[in-house]
Design a protein around this nucleic acid. Structure first.
Lengths: 231, 231
DNA sequence: ACCCTTCTTCAGGCGACCTTCAGCCTGGCT
DNA sequence: AGCCAGGCTGAAGGTCGCCTGAAGAAGGGT
């Protein structure tokens, strides 16, 4: 297997599959793609594994001894934010619908190409935010993984808090986020701390909008929103 | 189209597909599922549609006249946070991989069951956290969660009170709401404050009907009603 | 131990928004 | 046509939320 570039993002992935051959090969492929992998033949100790291993994605077999796929999918969704990729031999439309109803993010039928499973797991990881992706808003570029922010081709120097604030705004671009929401999500505070958010928004604007239009919009009475300026 | 309760989860979905039959049926199915839908036969004006319609998900054909799927997928990812569901007739593993490399979230092959496409779009919407209560009346779209109001594809800037007023009218579309009712439900006032409501209705109309027909109708002696203009 | 950066709190000032008022308009009735 | 109640809207005052400079507090590095 070829050495992979060191820039490939890593995440923790849990594999639950009773077929030994499939389980080990899937686990090996995921590990080779740079992810940390945990594997189990059934879902008997799923809760514990979720709690200790804290996976960002779960590859789940549909037919399992003991509790089956749908039940387990609900457990995963209820107790973690992990994405779920269901793997199954059943390939009828009603089966797939049942899977999506149970809350899975993707559905792959056996036999499958390992590369495709990998691609789908990667897509789910990207979407759940487990992989820091590059976000672009107008001429603003935010590279979460590298911790880099650029505006109109020029690097912008942000403090740690400012960066987290901007990253959260970017992850929810075009949506209004209230002060309380920002405080809990960016700072982790439960109670509302006056104008803490205001001050940091202000600082962010000063740096971000030094050489460009307004990107952080305030929606009076509601909160703030990151979006491209109107033409 | 059947009437639906306004509490059903909804979002904005853009469909780009050159086959007229498929495009209209997909658009209809999505609309019937309660989503606000925009559709285009090709990706020529994709940027504009993304900027104005601000979809939370894009259903994208792989083979399109002009710029093709992968190119368009990259445009979507670079300039918006929308999830992407690729629809294609090509069903070889390398094709799928190319799709995922381009950054799509899911991949459906023709022919597909409409229910499955819906399920996959829903899964993507759920994962992107885009499901909220979106209400559409004629060419007016109200996204309560994002705090967004759009008329004929253009964002409308409302104050907090105007937004609450419109949201309440929309939640009770096609029903007449008295001044007192609006005052208690939107303002929380017990006593009737003269023409407070009138003034705000007036402001709402000025902004809403700047580029379109009348949507807020006054029913003399009874109150106001939000409904599509007669054809 | 000191300094420097960053985070947080405080207070003043400003502007947008809400509300009221007054005059004009519209539609329905006689 | 004329009248009248109800509806509409421009203008103005006051309030409240937001912005920002400045100073204190906390953490990290030398």
């Amino acid at each position: 297997m070829a050495a992979r570039p060191s820039s490939v993002p890593r995440a923790r992935v849990l594999v639950v599959e009773d077929d030994d051959t499939i389980r080990t090969s899937v686990a090996a492929a995921l590990a080779d793609a740079g992810h940390a992998v945990d594997a189990a033949p059934d879902g008997s100790d799923l809760e514990e594994r979720l709690a200790s291993f804290r996976p960002s994605a779960v590859v789940l077999d549909w037919m399992l001894p003991g509790r089956d796929g749908p039940r387990l999918a609900q457990v995963v969704r209820a107790t973690s934010a992990a994405g779920i990729v269901m793997v199954t031999a059943r390939d009828e439309v009603p089966d797939r619908l049942a899977g999506f109803e149970a809350g899975v993010d993707d559905y792959v039928t056996k036999p499958f190409a390992m590369a495709e499973l990998l691609a789908r797991v990667t897509a789910v990881l990207r979407r759940t935010g487990a992989i820091g992706s590059v976000v672009q808003v107008a001429d603003l570029t935010i590279d979460e993984e590298a911790g880099l922010v650029m505006r109109a081709g020029r690097a912008v120097d942000l403090t740690a808090t400012e960066f987290r604030l901007l990253a959260y705004l970017a992850a929810n671009r075009d949506r209004v986020l209230s002060g309380t929401q920002l405080l809990t999500q960016v700072w982790g505070y439960d109670d509302y701390a006056e104008n803490l958010v205001q001050v940091h928004i202000s600082a962010l604007r000063r740096k971000l909008e030094a050489h460009g239009d307004r990107l952080v919009h305030t929606v009076r009475g509601l909160g703030y929103r990151l979006s491209a300026p109107p033409p």
